[in-house]
Simulated assay, not measured.
Amino acid sequence: MTRKSHGPAFKKAAIELAQCPLCRGRSVTQGVFHELPCSHCHASGFVAAATGVAPALDELVTQLGMRLQAATRQIEQLRNPRASGPEATYQGSNRRGAGGTNYTGD
């Protein structure tokens, strides 16, 4: 197997994000009369956890999109729990009956 030595990565690496220390994840800071967009985190509320610096806007959009997709997958898994134990055989077809039908042993 040959390793890739140049060019962009095959998969985008996830960057660990943390709340912005200045706006505390709110995306805005308090001005004299009204709230202003946080200039430290590009008004996103997130910075890189390792460095404390806000990623570039295109990188930030990619990272937030990856986090949203992961959260959506987790929500879908929690909404549709898989049956386990003895009831798992009754939920789907085991194709053990005559002609490939479901056989439960009853």
Rank of each mutant, 00 (worst) to 15 (best):
R3G: 08
H6E: 10
G7F: 03
G7S: 05
P8K: 15
P8T: 09
P8V: 15
A9N: 15
A9W: 06
F10Q: 12
K11M: 07
K12N: 13
A13L: 12
A14K: 15
A14P: 04
A14D: 11
L17I: 12
L17S: 09
A18C: 11
Q19V: 11
Q19K: 14
C20Y: 05
P21H: 09
P21F: 04
L22F: 04
L22N: 02
L22D: 00
C23I: 04
C23W: 00
R26I: 05
S27R: 14
V28P: 02
T29S: 02
T29Q: 05
Q30R: 02
Q30T: 14
Q30W: 06
G31A: 09
F33L: 13
F33E: 14
F33Y: 14
H34Y: 12
E35W: 08
E35K: 15
P37Y: 10
C38T: 06
S39R: 11
S39A: 06
S39C: 01
S39G: 07
C41Q: 06
C41D: 03
H42R: 07
H42W: 01
H42V: 01
A43G: 04
S44N: 06
S44L: 02
S44M: 03
G45N: 04
G45L: 02
F46V: 03
V47S: 05
A48N: 13
A49P: 06
A50R: 07
A50T: 12
T51K: 05
T51C: 07
G52T: 03
G52S: 00
V53E: 13
A54H: 04
A54T: 08
P55H: 03
L57I: 01
D58R: 14
D58F: 04
V61K: 08
V61L: 12
T62Q: 14
Q63D: 09
G65P: 01
G65C: 07
M66H: 04
M66E: 12
M66N: 09
R67L: 13
R67V: 01
R67C: 03
R67S: 11
L68D: 03
L68K: 11
Q69R: 14
Q69L: 13
A71Y: 06
A71G: 03
T72D: 15
T72S: 13
R73Y: 00
Q74W: 09
I75V: 02
I75T: 04
I75L: 11
E76Y: 01
Q77R: 13
Q77I: 04
L78A: 14
R79V: 09
N80Y: 07
N80F: 03
P81W: 02
R82W: 01
R82H: 01
A83D: 02
S84E: 14
S84A: 08
G85M: 05
G85Q: 01
G85V: 09
P86F: 05
E87N: 02
E87I: 06
A88K: 10
Y90C: 12
Y90H: 15
Q91H: 07
Q91P: 00
N94G: 06
N94H: 00
N94A: 06
R95I: 02
R95T: 10
R96G: 08
R96D: 15
R96P: 00
G97N: 14
G97R: 14
G100P: 03
T101A: 12
T101Q: 08
T104L: 15
G105N: 07
D106G: 06
D106W: 00
